[in-house]
């Protein structure tokens, strides 16, 4: 066995299948995307040639890029905010493991099992002008058809779908806080709010880092819920990057579609790197 840990080559076969799959089906497309984003490639001309920033220029000329970036970023922020507010509240209420709490945890986990597509159809039904939400509120409002609410509602549906899972991650985080720390804070005279702000919240940093990063990054790739509800409308108010990408792809403009996909990647990098760095630093200083 000694020679087993020493013989480095001997470990390679165990990692190789995973490495090859990631290299071929993740890394290679990633690198190809950098080329395609700056290439002319359409269904009308199969030859792929460099064209510099032409794709970006085309997208700007058609007024597609700036709007898509704005919509995508707003969507991600809304989705992250709603999801984490709801999930953290639920986690605080359901932290202790008991029979009643398990029933509630189980119920609130249910939306996570529903596909984002199905979630889109369900809420499109609930929020229809003559639907259940409006008849309860006694108003008539096209939640998904009005520019004022469409984006918020679509982000809400996405948040609704994932909140169950994020709640459980927060519960795991809450339960990893040493009891003694809370007890000594109580002995020192800290009230519930002070305990939350001074002990629970800083100790929750790893779960918070994870959840904020995951929800933001995930929402930047938004597509499914929008496809099931607004299709990008009204006008272009919910036309996120991936929605435009799919449209460009459908029309045979593969180069511009790649450029849009690459924009999502850039947004993810621009979001994730400082976020993880900042949240990690906060974790240390508490």
């Amino acid at each position: 066995m000694r020679d087993m840990t020493r013989a480095r080559a001997a470990w390679l076969p165990w990692a190789l299948p995973a490495i090859v799959l990631v290299a071929v089906f993740f890394v290679a497309p990633f690198l190809l995307n950098v080329r395609f984003a700056f290439s002319s490639w359409t269904s009308f001309r199969a030859e792929i040639t460099w064209n510099g920033l032409d794709n970006v220029r085309t997208l700007i000329d058609q007024d597609l890029l700036a709007n898509a970036v704005t919509v995508t970023v707003l969507y991600a922020i809304l989705c992250m905010a709603i999801q984490n507010a709801v999930s953290l509240s639920l986690a605080l209420a359901l932290q202790r493991t008991g029979r009643v709490n398990t029933v509630f945890r189980s119920a609130f986990f249910l939306p996570t099992l529903i596909s984002p597509l199905a979630a889109g159809y369900i809420w499109r039904g609930l929020l229809a002008p003559d639907g259940a939400v409006n008849s309860f509120l006694g108003i008539e409002w096209a939640w998904l058809g009005e520019p004022a609410t469409a984006l918020v509602v679509v982000a809400f549906i996405d948040a609704w779908k994932w909140s169950g899972l994020i709640t459980l991650v927060y519960i795991a985080g809450l339960n990893s806080i040493p009891k003694s720390l809370l007890e000594s804070a109580t002995v020192d005279g800290a009230g519930a709010w002070t305990r939350f702000r001074r002990v629970v919240f800083p100790m929750l940093a790893p779960a918070l880092t994870f959840n904020v990063a995951v929800t933001l990054v995930g929402a930047l790739s938004a597509y499914d819920v929008i496809a099931a509800t607004t299709g990008g409308g009204p006008g272009d108010h919910t036309r996120a990057l991936n929605v435009v990408m799919r449209q460009q792809w459908g029309q045979g403009f593969f180069g511009t579609a790649s450029a849009l996909g690459f924009t999502v990647t850039l947004l993810v990098i621009a979001t994730a790197v400082p976020l993880v760095w900042w949240l990690r630093r906060r974790e240390v200083t508490g």
């Binding site: 993740f26 190809l32 790649s258 994730a272």
Partner: peptide, 27 residues
Amino acid sequence: SRWLQAAYFVMGLSILLPPSIIPTVYL
């Protein structure tokens, strides 16, 4: 092995970065 640790780092990136769907179709 440093090579394997590099591969591990790339795998970490593959969680974070969105997959490039259009080049995947091409590939």
